[in-house]
């Protein structure tokens, strides 16, 4: 198990470096010199520009600058925002809790709706619940989440006036964004879990277990679910990125604070360090979640561990 985790970490390392390189390169491929953008309007002397370049670590070769960037990252320094002059780390840090709340609430919706629907549909394929679940899944995947958000606002906030459309003050305000963001994910979970359960029920060991006299309940929880969940977990992990990216549009629609609406605002202002900070954060979070998911999968299924040691 330890060697599996170490191998998995070793594969992650180059990807992590690649992500930082890609994020760092944004500054270099974007038109315009950072120092000139910062000193815009003050007609700077070349001396001022080179001083600022030095201060920002922007002199020397590309790789010297990249090295400087990495060293700063390790110290938790994401640079200074062009538009607010605050540290990016502090700004992103203040926005992050809102996005995490939204993502967790959406994940709760996704699991709360997707898992029961997937299990019931999987046990009785072709039954009423399965047909409803399939309809929900097909629509859930196909309806754009930002449009679903608009529909929810229209029905529950504008027409019925049950829930607030905007704002972050109360817990109610979280419901509509979380449903809009989590629904498509629920559809994917339901679909995958259903297919996995159907597949497991066709395996010979299920026949053996049934012949041995296990109850249907034991069959489901002790045999079918253990197998079905393992492969579903991987896909769920891969889809965490869906929540983080989807939060961008959802935050903009509902006028919520968070790293998504922060990112969109800063792209419009061409505030490169802030953009770099958010992009790096999301990509690394995504990578870490996938790493944890793979390790969990390895814990649940010994065959995965063996696959990695070959």
């Amino acid at each position: 198990m330890i060697s599996f985790i170490i191998r998995r970490l070793l594969v992650t390392l180059p990807v992590l470096l690649g992500i930082t390189l890609l994020v760092f390169s944004i500054l270099h491929v974007i038109p315009g010199n950072p120092a000139q953008i910062l000193l815009f309007g003050s007609s700077p002397t070349p001396q001022q520009i080179s001083n600022l370049d030095h201060q920002l670590g922007l002199n020397g070769s590309f790789f010297a600058q990249y090295w400087h960037y990495l060293v700063q990252l390790v110290h938790g320094n994401l640079g200074y925002s062009y538009s607010s002059q605050q540290t990016v780390a502090a700004e992103v840090g203040s926005q992050l809790p809102y996005t995490i709340n939204l993502s967790l609430a959406a994940l709760a919706v996704a699991l709360g709706v997707g898992v029961p629907l997937g299990i019931i549909a999987g046990i009785r394929p072709g039954g009423v619940v399965d047909k409803v679940a399939t309809g929900v899944a097909v629509l859930g995947v196909a309806i754009p989440y930002f449009w679903l958000a608009i529909l929810l606002v229209l029905v529950f906030a504008v027409k019925l006036r049950w829930l607030p459309a905007l704002g972050t003050g109360s817990a109610d305000a979280l419901i509509l964004p979380a449903v809009a963001l989590g629904w498509g994910f629920a559809a994917i979970i339901a679909r995958l879990l259903r297919n996995n359960i159907i597949e497991v029920y066709e395996r010979p060991f299920m026949l053996v277990a049934r012949a041995k006299g296990f109850s249907e309940w034991q069959l489901l929880w002790r045999h079918a679910m253990r197998n079905a969940v393992a492969s579903t977990v991987t896909i769920v992990g891969l889809q965490i990125g869906y929540l983080l990216a989807g939060a961008v549009a959802i935050e903009v629609i509902f006028g919520r604070p968070g790293i998504g609406s922060f990112l969109v605002a800063r792209i419009q202002e061409k505030d490169v360090p802030s953009i770099q900070g958010v992009v790096l954060l999301v990509a690394v979070a995504y990578l870490v979640v996938n790493l944890l998911v793979d390790i969990t999968h390895g814990l649940l299924d010994p065959r995965i561990r063996q696959g990695w040691s070959r």
Partner: peptide, 21 residues
């Protein structure tokens, strides 16, 4: 691994990076 690096960015995020540039 280069593909993995690109896959580490959710589609919308990667698209927003291109928009930035």
């Amino acid at each position: 691994r280069i593909m993995d690096i690109l896959l580490a960015f959710p589609g919308l995020l990667l698209a927003l990076v291109v928009v930035t540039i």
